[in-house]
């Protein structure tokens, strides 16, 4: 737009890239408040205070990633931190016995924690010292050199869905395993609370829901050439679905069986079909031919976005959807 990207903490004071005092103050204050909130989140004796501190910590973390010039991670942190993580913690708090909900936890800080604190500080210092001696660019240049064959314009998406797509495949597999493990533990907990909310809440969700869907697509599209992609998009979709559930929606009867399972597995399925299909068509396992990389990545991205959204929602539900309480309207 106007000014060139300003120097930030990622390149500490090399020659002309010195930070403006305002920036330094901003970063220092940001760091300070994050430490305070993190401390509150772990040590606050009132559980609710701890959860709110953690949610606020998430919001500031996104700002911190912005300051570190990593808008991709900022976007992921924003969509997860402001959405589902907080919702999960708040819902968990609601499931605790009332006397524990706002209750005081036993005091954790004792004098005996002092040695641990010193060790932690020492360890952090060593890590910091080691980090500073590492060669700065990392693998960035290798990624940029390979970009022409990536099929997308965004280096982050290229790494996630092309160069290191194998990792992403396994991540999605792990998420699916988590859902399976959760389903084996019991049935969903939302169905037991059918009380209707104030009319303003369904009205809000009816208004927002199409926007959630639209911005999910937007982030998927964005992922091709900028910050975005399947993970933030999936997180946003999950937030929209959870919001609908909170406003009183039920998992529709006809979606509970096979469609739900297909949606949960779609990401992994698309990945595997592409990987095995490529072995059959090209001869190598999971190596896109450059001329088709773009469309293959788009397919995987859509399937993965859908799956991640539904999987996160399933994790929020906390069990397999039941059909005991009155079905969808």
């Amino acid at each position: 737009m106007r000014a060139p990207p300003s120097p930030t903490a990622s390149d500490p004071g090399n020659g002309d890239g010195l930070m403006h005092p305002v920036e330094i103050t901003f970063d220092a204050l940001l760091l300070f408040s994050m430490v305070v909130l993190a401390w509150q989140g772990v040590h606050a004796r009132n559980m609710f205070r701890a959860v709110v501190s953690f949610i606020m910590f998430g919001l500031l973390t996104a700002v911190a990633w912005v300051r570190l010039e990593a808008p991709d991670i900022a976007l992921a942190e924003a969509s997860l931190g402001a959405g589902l993580t907080g919702a999960l913690l708040l819902a968990t708090l609601g499931r605790l016995a009332p006397e524990r909900r706002g209750a005081r936890r036993p005091k954790v800080v004792k004098l005996s924690t002092l040695p641990w604190l010193t060790m932690g500080l020492a360890g952090t210092t060593v890590l910091l010292a080691v980090t500073l001696t590492l060669p700065a660019p990392g693998l960035g240049e290798a990624v940029l050199a390979a970009m022409p064959a990536a099929g997308v314009d965004s280096p982050v998406t290229a790494v996630l869905l092309n160069f290191r797509a194998w990792d992403t495949l396994l991540e999605i597999g792990v998420m699916l395993l988590a859902v399976i493990a959760l389903w084996s533990l019991g049935q969903d907990v939302l169905a037991s609370k059918p009380r209707l909310p104030a009319p303003a809440l369904p009205a809000l969700v009816r208004l927002l829901f199409p926007l959630f869907v639209l911005s999910t697509f937007y982030l998927l599209w964005r992922g091709g050439h900028g910050p975005g992609g399947a993970f933030p998009a999936g997180a946003l979709l999950a937030a929209g679905l959870v919001l609908a559930l909170l406003a009183g929606a039920q998992v529709p009867e006809r979606m509970r069986g096979a469609p739900l399972r297909w949606a949960l597995g779609a990401g992994l399925f698309a990945f595997l079909v592409v990987a095995v299909g490529l072995m059959w068509a090209v001869g190598t396992f999971f190596a896109y031919p450059p001329q088709h990389a773009s469309i293959l990545i788009a397919i995987i991205e859509i399937a993965a976005g859908l799956s991640i959204g539904v999987m996160l929602t399933a994790l929020f539900l906390g069990g397999e959807p039941t059909d005991i309480k009155g079905g969808g309207k």
Binding site: A198, A200, L201, A203, L204, L207, L208
Partner: peptide, 12 residues
Amino acid sequence: LVIVSGATCASL
């Protein structure tokens, strides 16, 4: 978006 959410949340 913020104004719609804010107004609803205040009532909630």
